[in-house]
Write a protein that binds this DNA or RNA. Structure first.
Lengths: 167, 167
DNA sequence: TTGACATAGTTAGTTGGCTAACTATAATAT
DNA sequence: ATATTATAGTTAGCCAACTAACTATGTCAA
């Protein structure tokens, strides 16, 4: 996430490049613009979801459950797929359960484990949210034809391969 | 930004597209991949900065100060440029001041206002961090030649224009 | 079989963002 | 001139992520 709203002008980048010879001006501006656009997309997604009384975290949990044939998973698996800790997942599931969107069912085969089941109310919520989200996303991306979308995937793939060098 | 680690496979996208006709599969996968790569870039940047005992928020404040001719600004202006609230800026500046990287100087001309000044220790910190950051970023983006970087900027520009449709 | 280790989920406490409310000061309109 | 409104910065308390530690249960090797 990039908080920074005020991206550097070419002049500022030049000034920094003078002091720091390692600076690669087009690399920096591409990197920052990528972060800027992605952050704004994420904020826009938040705004879209908030109209449906949802936040990204809980919404993704519902989607992960819907992906399953049985609409069922476990907190551990959900946490791993969502990329949050098990502790955080406990909180997300608490919220979803309070709203009646999922239920916790104790597993028989492993008494440590809990099955998380998407409720019919949870599915109904998705059936309202997803069409709205998909419609908006289609509009958002409509300026890119298929060729440009392929280009985008390729460019992102190249950047993605470089990420280990940044760490 | 995007917590989700487990991006949808083509099969899953197809399944969702069956249920929700508004789904535009290539739009969705492009959108998610953009968020995924940007999130990983941001996490990698965090990891790079943490080696220097910095987090993004404080680091950007130092950079914003260095951009100024006088290495000086005010909490309000910094907050606006960074895209955080003035309250959050208070906390960031508290941390930076404790580490001796900035100082608060009371302004004479407007007694409500405070001037934030980058200290020599703050500049010295940047003179260590920035070359490291620029070197890593150069490597990260080296797979993209100038033509591809221009393409990237253009594609991001098109997506950026679509963001209002998502909100 | 039982002692050591691993796994599932939760709880407690920390962090860094946020909003709302507050103090102090400045600017403006009557 | 003075009452109102706006601005600068801080404080207090909320929220959702985190880590660390805990309980309960399962697994496996000596």
């Amino acid at each position: 996430m990039l908080q920074l709203r005020d991206l550097p002008t070419p002049e500022i980048l030049g000034k920094f490049a003078d002091r720091y010879p390692d600076a690669d001006v087009t690399a920096i501006s591409g990197f920052l613009y990528l972060l800027r656009v992605a952050t704004d997309l994420s904020l826009a997604l938040d705004a879209c979801l908030s109209k449906h009384d949802l936040l990204q975290g809980r919404w993704w949990v519902l989607i992960l459950l819907m992906r399953e044939e049985s609409s069922t998973s476990t907190p551990s698996i959900l946490a791993e797929k969502l990329g949050v800790t098990r502790a955080s997942m406990t909180g997300l599931l608490d919220g979803l359960e309070q709203h009646g969107l999922v239920t916790r069912v104790f597993a028989k085969e492993d008494r440590r484990s809990v099955k998380i089941q998407l409720t019919s109310a949870g599915q109904a919520k998705l059936d309202v949210v997803m069409p709205d989200y998909y419609r908006r996303l289609r509009q958002c991306m409509q300026a890119l034809d298929e060729e440009k979308r392929v280009q985008l995937q390729q460019l992102l793939g190249l950047i993605n391969m470089g990420i280990p060098a940044l760490i």
